[in-house]
Design a protein around this nucleic acid. Sequence first.
RNA 1: GUCCCUAUCGUCUAGCCAGGUCUAGGACAUUGGAUUUUCAUUCCAACGACCGGGGUUCGAAUCCCCGUGGGGACGCCA
Length: 437
Amino acid sequence: MKTRVRFAPSPTGFFHIGSARTALFNWLYARHTGGTFVLRIEDTDHERNTEEALTVLKDGMRWLGMDWDEGPDVGGEYGPYFQSRRDDIYAKYLEILRKNGRAYDKDGAVFFKVSGEEQVLHDAVYGNVARTEEKDFPIFRSNGTPVFHFVNVVDDICMEITHVIRGQDHLTNTNKHLELFKAFGAPLPQFAHIPLILKSDGQGKMSKRDRGALIEEYQQKKFLPEAVVNYLSLLGWNPKNDREIMSAEEIAKLFDFPGIVKSNARFDERKMAHFNTEHIRMLPADKFRALALETVKEAENIDLGSDGEYVKKVFALCQPKASNMESFPSMVDYFFTDEYAFDETAKERVFKKGDPLARLAEVKEIFEKLDSLEAEKTHDAIAAYAEAKGVKPTEFFSITRFAVSGHAGGPDLFPMLEVLGKDRVLRRIAAALKSLA
RNA sequence: GUCCCUAUCGUCUAGCCAGGUCUAGGACAUUGGAUUUUCAUUCCAACGACCGGGGUUCGAAUCCCCGUGGGGACGCCA
C-alpha cells in the first residue's frame, strides 16, 4: 500500500518552527517511501485573516522546499483540503455515530460517548502506550462547528492517511482518536509521535515569542532553506552514522522512524548558524552568486556598478569567508565604494603596536613600482622588501587590509588586493595615509 | 491535582532493544595551539556526560523497581 501522510496546520499567521519540523518529518517520510504528502488546512473556527495566514504558511513550506502532492493550489483526489469546506462530510460521519449510539446532544453541543476501555497505541516511536479515556468529549460545538478531534480523525479516514506523524503533545490525545477510529470501524493508521522542540533557555517548548521560533525569521535573515531543513531534521532524528551536513535528498533517503529520538530537544541557534555557514560554503559558485546578488541588491546603500566580471570576482573571493548572508553586504561593501567606514575596534587592533602608518607608506611605494597587483607578485614584493629591511612581513598586512577595506578581517588579503586592482588600492592607501594620520 | 512520555558532555546526539570490545564516540559552543600570508578560513589539541538509590548478573550506560529532574495532555483551541 502506498504511504499517505499529511501535514494539517491551522493557519495562524505565522509558521512555527515546531510545525515546520512536523511538516518536514512528514515530507521526509513521504519522499523516503515514495508516498504522497498531503497538505490539509485545519481552518475551522478561526476569525483571523486566513487568506494572509495561509500565504505565510504556503510561502514557508515552499521556501523550505516541502512540496505537497495534494492540497491547496495543487488539488487532488481527496479534496476539499480545507476543513471549512467539508461540512457535509462531517455531517455524514456524525450520522454514523448517532446511529451507533455513540453521539448524543448535551447543552446544545454534540458529545462522543467513549467506550471506557483501555486503548493501546502502538506508536512507531514510543512503542506501546496504554491509556483510558474516561470522559465523553464534544465533537460539535453548540454553534454547530465540529471539533478538532473529530475532524482530524474523519479527514484521516476519508483521505486514507496511512501514517500520522505529529508532535508528542498529541500523545495523550490519541486515545480519543483511537476511540473514534474504532467507532467508525475504520482501520488505524500507523502513529508516529515525535519529540518536541524546547526553548534554548527557560522552561517549556518553543513559543512563537522565542527568538528563532518562526520560519519567517530565517527567511528575513537570509538563511539558506537547505540549512534550516538540515538542522531541523537533526532535532529529534539522526542517521546513526554521525553524518550532519546533508542535503534534503540525502536526508530523505536515510530518514525513517527508528532514527527518531524519544526525548525532547532544546533549540540551539548557534548550531543552526553553523549549519547555515556550512551550506553557504557548499553552494555552487553560480548559486551563491545569484543569492549574493539578491542579498546585496536589497541592501540599498550598495551600488554594484556595471562591471559584471568584477562583481563575479568579488563574490567568488568572499564566499569561502561568508558565515551568513545577512551580514554579507557589510562584508563586501568596500569593494563597491571608496566611502567605506573605518571600523573603530579594528583600528585599535591594527594600531596596537609598531608603526603601521610607516609600513603603509612603504607598501604604497612597493605597489607603485608593480605593474599590477597580481596576488603572488604582490606578496613576494612585500616579503622581499620586509626581508631586506629585517621586518616581519606580517607587519604590513593588517594595516594594508585596514586601509583599503576599513575592516580587520575579510577575504584572503592578496587575492583581495588583486580583485580591487592597483588603481583603487593606491588611491585608498593615499587617502588612508592622510585620514588616519 | 490526575494521567502519559522522557532522562548520556553546557547543547544536539551515537551506544541501550540482542549486558562485557565504553579508560563512553561524533557535532555545536568554549579554551589553547599551528599554518612564520592577514582573516570571519583550514588543521590540531584540551575541556566536558552515563540523574540518584536499590535490585538482577561473574559483569550494567545498557535489563527491572523506586525516587528525582525535565516535558506534555487533561478546552464547546488546534
